[in-house]
Design a protein around this nucleic acid. Structure first.
Lengths: 240, 240
DNA sequence: CGGAAATACTGGTCCAACCAGTTGACCACT
DNA sequence: AGTGGTCAACTGGTTGGACCAGTATTTCCG
């Protein structure tokens, strides 16, 4: 069972990744016309249906605009693409580095997590508050395995986000968790001070149970910003 | 030309919407097996490729998990789906109402917008700060047309978000703007006090230009929370 | 020259296979 | 009885070709 699973990636998935990276990398600039499906199929030596599946995904990611009969146009991803694309941007070799994206995601996590803690203290049921307390305790007694710890930690935060009653936060949380899996190094490096601080988790759970919204928000923000590198990055924000 | 253009939605798009709503509506619970592609094609009277394109989109939205040879499994969207799905959730007749989603999105907008204003004051270039000031002025002199006003207002906020240098914020902003278009009623109702307060926009731009991060954050939060209904919604947060 | 018709694209859909994995029933062997 | 292998019947993945439905371009007539 030690053997790694030999996963053969589907053709349309590979194609999607290639086209996505071309767009995010600037090789296909906004406004340009995407190569026609038939040409792409011929060029990559695959069937047109596979190309169509890939293009359909580009369309859903709002990276292109497809018009029946006309040409498929490349959109400006900075203006249209959604949060689910963060992982793809990191994958593209051009533009922001993985570290940049990771920092941004951590910043967003702190911002949303703090507000979710506040809302959770305001709105969650007593039962949910008890669950959060129990989960904090469970996390405190989790073995030294870092992967396992990370799992219980994420599960704990999920409870808080769910308790906030804000579905947008929940979905954004999903996007961040899912997108940061391939960038798992960062939490391992900087997150120890956050994940291992059992006492802070207990206190945050207590704040929520006591309905102390302000204190919960403050503590959550402090806890979540420990992992955010306060790097003096380039002055002009979003770079290409 | 008076006839409204009869836009024939693509078959795969309709199919995607139907399956998505079935999943979000709970008709296809998490863990259940999706009907095989061939059966779906036969049942809907369409070609299997159209079904495949729809399923591929479900997969990208992380609503299902497809395994070659095995059955396609329905996932728990509350644990996997990303922010781009917010609009779909509102469309499903079961679960949260459109008002719920709108409130959540407005809350998230306030949370991110405030932090983006803070970061923008800290990190944006002088040129960007000048652009933000100019855009605020431009917005102040925009005609009484509400749609037009909304456009300049969104454009102004986009500058601030971009100036924050956080790509995650930018993408989430895109998701929110894009997702709230079909729910445009809410801003029209409650957003007047926010959109029309030209003076506050000028002050916020000035705070950013003066690098007063704290003041910028505070004002942005106050401005953005005007539209958030402080409704005493159900106690237990995320409902099905 | 202007505008309508013909033409050459592009994406959208369909049919009919076949390849490639998974599953489970069945049977032979230990 | 339990174990292991074989095989048939699913499942999704891919291919080819054909045709429909819109759009863009060219052509050609008035």
């Amino acid at each position: 069972m030690a053997e790694g699973h030999i996963r053969r990636e589907a053709v349309s998935d590979q194609l999607f990744a290639v086209l996505r990276d071309r767009i995010l990398g600037g090789e296909l600039p906004a406004g340009a016309a995407l190569t026609p499906e038939r040409e792409l199929a011929a060029g990559f030596g695959v069937n047109r249906h596979a190309v169509r599946e890939a293009v359909k995904r580009l369309q859903q990611a709002r990276l292109v605009e497809v018009s029946h009969g006309g040409r498929t146009q490349v959109l400006d991803w900075r203006r249209t693409a959604g949060l689910d694309l963060a992982v793809g941007i990191a994958a593209a070799d051009t533009g922001p580095t993985v570290q940049d994206i990771a920092r941004d995601a951590l910043e967003m996590r702190a911002c949303i997590g703090a507000d979710a803690a506040r809302l959770c203290a305001l709105r969650c049921s007593a039962r949910t508050a008890a669950e959060i307390t129990a989960a904090a305790e469970r996390h405190a007694h989790t073995g030294p395995d870092l992967t396992e710890l990370d799992g219980t930690y994420v599960a704990w935060w999920r409870l808080i986000i769910e308790g906030s009653g804000n579905i947008a936060y929940l979905l954004a949380f999903n996007s961040l968790v899912d997108g940061m899996i391939p960038v798992a190094d960062v939490p391992a490096d900087l997150g120890a001070a956050e994940i291992l601080d059992v006492e802070a988790h207990r206190r945050l759970a207590a704040h929520i149970a006591a309905r102390e919204a302000g204190a919960a928000e403050e503590l959550a923000r402090e806890l979540l910003t420990r992992s955010v590198p306060s790097a003096p990055r380039g002055c002009e924000g979003v770079r290409r």
